[in-house]
Computed example of a mutant assay.
Amino acid sequence: MANDDEVAARLGAVYPELPRGEQAIVRVLLDDYPFAALGSLRSLADRAKVSPPTASRLFARLGWSGFADFQAAVRAEGREHDRSRLREFVATAPDGPRRAAEQLRAGLDATVAAAGEPLLGRIAALLSQARGVWGMGGPLSELAADYLVRQLASLRPGVRRVPDGAAERARVLLDLGPGDLVVAYDFRRYSDTTARFVRAARARGARLVLVTDAWESPLAAQAEVLLRLPRDAAGPIAPLTHEIAVTELILVATVPLLTESPGRLENLDALTAELGQD
């Protein structure tokens, strides 16, 4: 890969020669790169106000075998970006702690900026109104999901973690319905088991809040609300700090909507003290 933006440069280079409809697709892609490239073909076409066949013609004209091939190129570019950052990080090992602190701070700033007030408000409304809330994640991101569940369960009833194991998850799905909400954390490399559960839950009418990365989980099209952490929050080792930070923001936004929280917390403290006695 010549550079981190080779695909974007390729789109920009051909733009003047394209028909108007295909130019509209390129404008959408470049205005929100790489995010606009990682949803569905139909959503991309809708944003550009053209038909899906018009979008398909653009990718064929540029030498990709189809939209999926184009998306694979964008994701491969993202992976190379991460490898480059890791190589740079290793090459400057003597300054590692200082650079790590700078990158962590930059990632946190970008995460807070990405989790804007309107987006947090929509998530908070769903968390406060759902009949039941189910949290889940993949490797490492399951820790953020556990944190959400532990904190939110202290504030409202009906909050649980999606269990491990196919049989246990199947039993959960038996009772899921339109009143339920799944909050999934899905980061590269995306979890197949998370995807299977979420798709089954959505088929039963459950709603989805998805927290993902700049390159977007394949589940993005399934989400009612999508919270996408920016590329700056990825870092060479994708620190968990950013996932926990955005979870804290979600919780802070949700608390004012949960009128039963004070009494529930008092009961929880009393029960904890009672159970902790010999």
Rank of each mutant, 00 (worst) to 15 (best):
E260C: 10
P218E: 05
L258T: 11
A203I: 08
V255M: 12
L208R: 03
L257G: 10
L210Q: 11
R196V: 15
L208K: 02
A200R: 05
A214F: 09
A245S: 13
W215T: 04
I237G: 11
T254W: 01
L210M: 13
T259D: 15
E243I: 07
T241Y: 00
A206Y: 01
E216G: 03
A234V: 06
A201H: 01
V252H: 04
H242N: 14
I237Q: 10
E216D: 06
P256Q: 05
L210V: 12
P239H: 06
D232E: 15
R207T: 09
P236N: 02
H242P: 08
I244K: 00
R199A: 11
R207D: 10
A253D: 12
T247P: 04
L249E: 10
A233V: 08
L240W: 01
A201S: 07
L229E: 08
R204W: 04
I237W: 11
Q222M: 12
G263R: 15
D232V: 06
E216R: 09
A253I: 09
L219H: 07
R228F: 03
R202F: 09
L257V: 04
L226K: 04
L240E: 12
P236M: 02
R207C: 08
A200H: 06
V225D: 05
R207Y: 03
L229G: 03
A221M: 02
R199G: 04
A203G: 14
V255R: 14
W215Q: 06
R204F: 06
